[in-house]
Design a protein around this nucleic acid. Structure first.
Lengths: 169, 169
DNA sequence: TTGTTTTTTGCATATTTATGCATTTATTTT
DNA sequence: AAAATAAATGCATAAATATGCAAAAAACAA
């Protein structure tokens, strides 16, 4: 199915470029090999929550929904990153290990971002299962996590290195 | 001229109610005694920066521009309020007195809010002149300041009371 | 005030966006 | 696999929004 890829590409294009009409977006999509009609775009834009707002210089532009709509303050994010211990892929899903007792608040932040890529999360005590939407690769979920929690992967990488160092002693 | 009043009323209606088309807005405006055509509304909405975004349940709604576009973090605001000493009306303008050296940063915050009501500000060392747009009453400017800096008037009132108390001694 | 310039507005219409309906494509069930 | 159900899409068009242009209103200057 084409839809998922299209939604992601729409998000990408709208974020990176200034798009002022659905027809314009349609053309940009065609360039990336994705084709559909304006009708479909209209429906997709609604689903993504994309708004059309004045661009400040006499025109209009499309704009991704305000991420602050479910505001997760950024200091919370900073506190979250360090509790994440490990990120593992399994069975096409993604598993995040946190320090004990921190799975649900971490999952809360991830859910709160309202990312399309993530169908849902389930959190236990120190483990979060991230279920990607159909058609979403784990690669895309990684990207997405990095967007939600900037610096996450570096952080985890370092943690593992330190762990290794420690094990060697 | 009708325009100013209309812009304010539009902002008010859009903030308080869920409006899903310009025609709907047109009717609400008529109720408040303001009449114009859809064409004019279209222009006004653009000028105000009002966007049209999915309402999350299959429809659309108009939405005031994101105030975070020129983000002034709220702790800055909290720091600003206490430096304001007095608010005086003069010659149809508004004069704000701050403690010495704090006029320009305060004016910066006020400017940053991008309020339509305020045509501009001029800041010296401890004095800010706020120039309301044509057709805007000082009452409206007060309201507007209270929106930009919540608690401002209470703060100033208390300050003056304390001042009075001090003077009596 | 009177003439001049700028701004605002409505009208008509072009442009853009949304949607009902039928069809195709995908998913689930038996 | 075949049938049944649900989801996605295109087509045609309805609905909504934007805009060129001329007229009216407002602001400004002499």
């Amino acid at each position: 199915m084409q839809k998922t890829k299209r939604l992601l590409e729409i998000e990408k294009i709208i974020t990176e470029a200034t798009i002022s009409s659905q027809d314009e977006l349609l053309k940009k999509l065609k360039v990336t090999g994705i084709a559909c009609t304006q009708a479909t775009l209209s429906r997709n834009l609604r689903q993504l929550g994309v708004g059309r707002i004045p661009d400040g210089s006499g025109g209009y532009k499309y704009s991704m929904p305000d991420n602050n709509r479910n505001p997760v303050n950024s200091s919370l994010k900073l506190n979250i990153v360090p509790v994440i211990q490990e990120i593992v892929e399994a069975k096409g899903l993604m598993v995040i290990k946190t320090i004990p007792g921190n799975a649900s608040n971490t999952a809360f932040v991830i859910d709160g971002a309202g990312r399309y890529e993530i169908a849902g999360t389930i959190a236990g005590d120190d483990t979060i299962l991230i279920i990607p939407r159909n058609g979403i690769t784990l690669q895309q979920v990684h990207l997405c996590l990095e967007i939600i929690l900037p610096g996450l992967h570096d952080q985890v990488k370092n943690k593992n290195q330190m762990q290794n160092k420690y094990n060697k002693l």
